[in-house]
């Protein structure tokens, strides 16, 4: 095979200063500034939380709680990345919710047919491609739900959120080597889980 797989490239985040400015204003009592931060981060925080909890409703609860905790503790934000700080809070709230769900399992993993994190119905130019994309999304979401919490968090933070290893290590409080190991083993586990549907992902 001629083409050797290349490492995945991740985009950089150019909006830290804006976030820090808004956070400073919010800390001084500017509610609009805080709500701007909410608008900026709520979607990706919800995506993160949904992938961590595997449940959209639980993810909504976790994100709501994360923003409330963030607002209450704005004075504790002294870093240079509001997004990272917010994500750390969201990881904690999502983990709390996961812990509660494990103690009190109410329902199994949500119905795949009603999977709410499918793309919105938009007029796709290529219905077949869109159908494949949906199938990919379902299969991958189900497989992510089968990973251990640690592996899932590492993969989501790396592949979805675009954090690098040191950032993930700081966010999750583990060593760099542990982060790498979780990501690599998690990907291998995903591949094993997706064995039957890997054709969906191959070009």
């Amino acid at each position: 095979m001629e083409e050797v797989a290349q490492p995945v490239e991740r985009p950089a985040d150019p909006s830290r200063e804006r976030d820090v400015r808004l956070a400073r204003r919010a800390r001084e009592g500017d509610l609009d500034a805080f709500n701007q931060l909410v608008e900026i981060h709520q979607n990706h925080l919800l995506a993160l939380s949904t992938r961590l909890t595997g449940d959209v409703e639980a993810a909504h609860d976790a994100v709501q709680e994360a923003f409330i905790r963030a607002y209450r503790n704005l004075g504790a934000f002294h870093g240079d990345s509001f997004r990272a700080w917010l994500i750390r809070i969201a990881i904690n709230t999502s983990t709390d919710i996961l812990r509660v769900r494990k103690r009190r399992p109410s329902e199994p993993y949500p119905e795949r047919e009603d999977e709410p994190w499918e793309p919105r119905d938009t007029a796709s130019p290529d219905p077949e491609r869109e159908a494949i994309r949906r199938a990919q999304s379902r299969a991958l979401s189900a497989a992510l739900g089968e990973l251990t919490d640690d592996q899932r968090a590492a993969i989501v933070l790396y592949d979805v959120e675009g954090f690098d290893y040191p950032e993930i290590a700081r966010l999750t409080g583990v060593s760099l080597g542990t982060v790498k190991s979780r990501i690599h083993r998690g990907r291998l586990a995903l591949r094993a889980l997706l064995e039957d549907s890997m054709e969906l992902f191959r070009d």
Partner: peptide, 26 residues
């Protein structure tokens, strides 16, 4: 295996946005 792992990583990064049905603003 290598190609699959790359494809999985890309697909994970491309997971669609989750429709939000709550307003999280305070």
């Amino acid at each position: 295996l290598a190609a699959d792992l790359v494809a999985i990583a890309r697909a994970t990064a491309d997971l669609p946005e989750v429709p939000r049905h709550r307003d999280f603003r305070i």
